[in-house]
Design a binder for these strands. Structure first.
Length: 418
RNA sequence: GCGGGUGUAGCUCAGUCGGUUAGAGCGCCAGAUUGUGGCUCUGGAGGUCGCCGGUUCAAUUCCGGUCACUCGCCCCA
């Protein structure tokens, strides 16, 4: 290979892309904090069983999408394909059960060996929210409300619909699974090859199939509602009531199932039509058995993850950078003064750009390209008189300002960001 | 993992029914304007036509493979 390309399915985040990315994270984090969530950052790799055991042997993620390797010490390591399992592991190893309930927010890269396409990469980034230790449906409602608020704050909420379903508790879930197996086994000859395989591994997924033949069987298939026991039904009703009370619109989708094994009760996805086949922008649900599955104390949980790249693509506009003030020193004495001045201005909250090189025209041109709001021109004669020329780059008018007054003139009003 | 499409300048793309120096717009650099940006004008730099191989007197153009992107399946964020 003569020149290096990025590894397949990985991307550099630069310029506008980086700014969109950062904006998604900052917005989400700000709102998560309003919900009382705390930031967590768990390692990007874990011992393989942390994921293999929790996600389920039947899931595609475990079967063919994990980046798994033996490290130099011979440990079986996996790059995280999602956040929840790592956070659950941190909860157990950190002995955090004393502090329940816990609310966490995380953001960072995750890794899945998939065939890349738009909105699907091998290294991508997620934001993630989890509530641990709350048995009741309030946590489900709040976590969904947070997702809803983040999409709204990003300006993409109008293009997303919320789909909602309940998989029921473990008992209901198992009963439904049996009912589906019984039904589809009777129609095995009409199922697609994919679905025959799903019948073995994860029959719920057949409900999600896009194959025409499979879909024809669905109207008569057992319905999840019929398998929910009283507790599960009440729980689901409480979640729906809560969303109604908050004015969050949703659409019931009895065929909404999630690919990872650990989900119980509530399952939801915010879906957009604007990203082609990769329509799910934020998805999650309740996972009451997960922590126990990892060997921890039985602890309920609800949460979701959202794809930062997908959200970033949906942003209508590229977030703007703050408009800087450009310093334009001319000559060595002015260079020294400019350094000092830049320091003072930044301390006062002003975004400052140095041109670093070139004559006046060149530096102004660069200032213009950076979108500077003003230029401070420091020439030899100005310095000698203790002033600077302050040029407004929008209008073009300029005036002389004593050096000592520059900070006061350019600093934003209290609290504002300039 | 399966099926289709695409790959020409930093970016967006045209073009070559196989034939001499491969083009445009935007961007970049310089000049018109020796301390005044944007607008305009003039000039300039920048390409192994994704990579490897085959066919041919001749391949950026045709064929095969490969890599990457992309659309769908699968799966998921």
């Amino acid at each position: 290979m003569a020149t290096f390309q990025p590894v397949r399915g990985t991307h550099d985040l630069v310029g506008d892309t980086a700014r969109r990315h950062a904006h998604v994270i900052e917005t989400a984090r700000r709102l998560a904090h309003l919900y009382g969530m705390e930031d967590v950052d768990t390692p990007v790799f874990e011992f393989t069983p942390v994921f293999a055991r929790t996600l389920g042997d039947a899931s595609d993620v475990v079967r063919k999408e994990m980046y798994t390797f033996a490290d130099r010490g011979g440990e079986e390591i996996t790059l995280r394909p999602e956040f929840t399992a790592g956070i659950a592991r941190a909860f157990i190893s950190g002995g955090m059960r004393q502090n329940l309930p816990l609310k966490f927010f995380a953001a960072g890269p995750v890794f899945r060996y998939e065939r890349p396409q738009k909105g699907r990469q091998r290294q991508f980034h997620q934001i993630d929210a989890e509530i641990l230790g709350v048995e009741g449906p309030q946590a489900d409602i709040e976590v969904i409300a947070l997702g809803h608020d983040i999409l709204a704050a990003l300006g993409v909420g109008a293009n997303c619909r919320l789909e909602l379903n309940s998989l029921g508790d473990a008992e209901s879930h198992a009963a439904y699974r049996e009912a589906l197996i019984a039904y589809f086994s009777g129609h095995k000859d009409k199922l697609s090859a994919d679905s025959v395989e799903r019948l073995e591994r994860n029959p719920l997924r057949i409900l999600d199939s896009k194959d025409e033949g499979d879909r024809a069987l669905l109207p008569d298939a057992p319905r999840i509602e019929d398998s929910l026991n009283d507790h599960s039904r009440d729980f689901f009703q409480a979640v729906k009531d809560g969303l109604d009370a908050l004015g969050i619109a949703y659409q019931l989708n009895p065929r909404l199932v999630r690919g990872l094994d650990y989900y119980t009760h509530t399952a939801f996805e915010f879906i957009t039509e604007d990203l082609g086949a990769q329509g799910t922008v934020l998805g999650g649900g309740r996972y009451d058995g997960l922590i126990e599955l990892l060997g921890g104390p039985a602890t309920p949980g609800v949460g979701w993850a959202a794809g930062i790249e997908r959200l970033a693509m949906l942003l209508a506009a590229v977030p703007e950078r703050p408009r800087p003030v450009a310093l334009v020193p001319l000559g060595p004495a002015a260079d020294a003064e400019a350094l000092r001045l830049a320091h003072q201005l930044r301390a006062a909250g002003v975004t400052v750009e140095h041109g670093y090189r070139g004559n006046l025209g060149r530096r102004l041109k660069r200032a213009d390209k950076l979108g500077a709001r003003a230029a401070v021109i420091l020439g030899e004669d100005e310095l000698a008189r203790g002033v600077a020329t302050l040029r407004d780059l929008d209008g073009g008018e300029q005036r002389e300002v004593p050096l000592g007054d520059l900070v006061a003139t350019l600093a934003p009003p209290d609290g504002a960001v300039g």
